[in-house]
Design a protein around this nucleic acid. Structure first.
Lengths: 247, 247
DNA sequence: GCATGCAGGATTTTCGAAAGAAAGATATTT
DNA sequence: AAATATCTTTCTTTCGAAAATCCTGCATGC
């Protein structure tokens, strides 16, 4: 008799706001792998040996391989035929490519949302901004160490704000791409943020407010420009932090 | 003892210009499934029962499931936890979403290629155009039935032309997205094209030439506009062909 | 009549072992 | 000593069966 099937029986459970909530082993493998890669638990380039993963997650080969195959097409994992999987490498070039692609996708989605957005959409933005702003102010004051939990909440609310902006773009694909690119950028932001908040030099809260204001004022051009600049600034900071070290 | 491993031993073999050429069973499953879905061999919405696929392709569950997981993230297959896989449905809305997203991606990629393209890039475009043009002229004259082979060649050269246009955009992601969106659009174009060539009403060869001319003249705005119009016209024809029938 | 519960069968999902390929180590030859 | 061949080990990949879940039809009770 099996033992590990309890997870699937857990009550509805909205983890990372995914559409379906039931958990197969393959789904668990997918989420945990993705989370570990994004958080930098596994080094970029590191081979992902199946026996190692099997022990780490307490799962069998099949669900692991299914998860790795999904992550492969999401660019988080590299697969070489008959030579297994490895964590996709990171580089400044890739970081800029993700950033610029994300900018392209989200600016278009934002423009369309501004054209089509209704009252609910506006309310969603205001709500998400407020929740984000609360957390930013809570963590901003001191250049102190941030707990994993504080950072995780900040990260989630940040994503929810950006997600709310483009929610009414009317394109499943744009929203989907935005999500995927968001995950990819996390690989660069999370490790860079680990511990030290880039104190001073940047008023992220203000940037968010300006994006929101332009959006609610239905000024598509301005909103797009501000959003693009927002992402560009983040990329520049990450580049500065990456350059001194390796690569 | 196994019997089916011969495929992996086949000599180098550049099918669909994929980076790696070695064939595992999972890779075979992926390609055959994708090809069958795109060609409409499986009806949109049709459940993809594993036992059925196992018999059809002579493979076991594992490689099939791995392939289906990849196709899931590429939007060709739908997966419901514990309820298996099914062919992703098609609709006019989805068709427009693919078309517009593709337009967005490729217009940006084309703009960047025009900025950065070198002599080799130009030569690649001219060569691809010529090969495409030859095939178009070969098939155009009569409104006759087209063989699968003729259509396949046309399809490949068409894609190679569009691929050549954006080859120097400098973004792995844009090129990758363009490829994926191309595959998705095939689901709509191939069945619509099956047999009857949309005779008369449209001079595709001219459209291609104009796109190429504007591109080589480094007129980014014009080239983008022509490319977008090219895709839009195709979508309009498909919409017209889909509307009378179901959905 | 309608809902509810319960077999039985169909299907997906997972497992662990076996087969196959690559990488590394050792021996053999030139 | 270098190059080549052969054996070992490590790892991936595939397989087929077992387990879990879903679905359908039927009976039971209200």
């Amino acid at each position: 008799m099996r033992v590990k099937r309890n997870a699937a029986a857990m009550a509805s459970h909205d983890e990372t706001a995914s559409p379906e909530a039931s958990f197969t082993a393959a789904e668990t493998a997918y989420r945990r792998l993705r989370s570990d890669i994004v958080a930098g638990v596994f080094e970029p380039g590191q081979p992902l040996r199946l026996e190692f993963l099997r022990q780490r997650y307490g799962l069998s080969f099949s669900p692991l391989r299914e998860a790795l195959n999904r992550l492969q097409t999401e660019r988080l994992v590299l697969a070489a035929a008959l030579r297994g999987f490895s964590v996709a490498p990171v580089s400044i070039e890739e970081m800029w490519d993700v950033t610029e692609t994300r900018s392209l996708i989200e600016c278009e989605a934002l423009k369309r949302s501004i054209e089509r957005g209704d009252d609910d959409w506006e309310a969603g933005i205001v709500a998400a901004f407020h929740a984000l702003d609360l957390q930013v102010r809570r963590l901003a004051p001191i250049g102190r160490e941030l707990s994993v939990d504080e950072l995780s909440t900040l990260e989630i609310r940040h994503q929810e704000f950006h997600s709310a902006l483009i929610a009414r773009c009317g394109s499943r694909r744009l929203i989907n791409l935005s999500d995927q690119l968001h995950v990819e950028t996390q690989r660069y932001r999370l490790p860079a943020l680990a511990g030290k908040m880039p104190t001073g030099t940047r008023d992220v809260a203000l940037e968010h407010r300006q994006i929101m204001d332009a959006t609610l004022a239905r000024d598509a051009d301005k909103a797009q420009a501000l959003l693009a600049a927002h992402y560009r600034r983040t990329a520049e900071l990450i580049e500065a932090q990456m350059s001194p070290r390796a690569n």
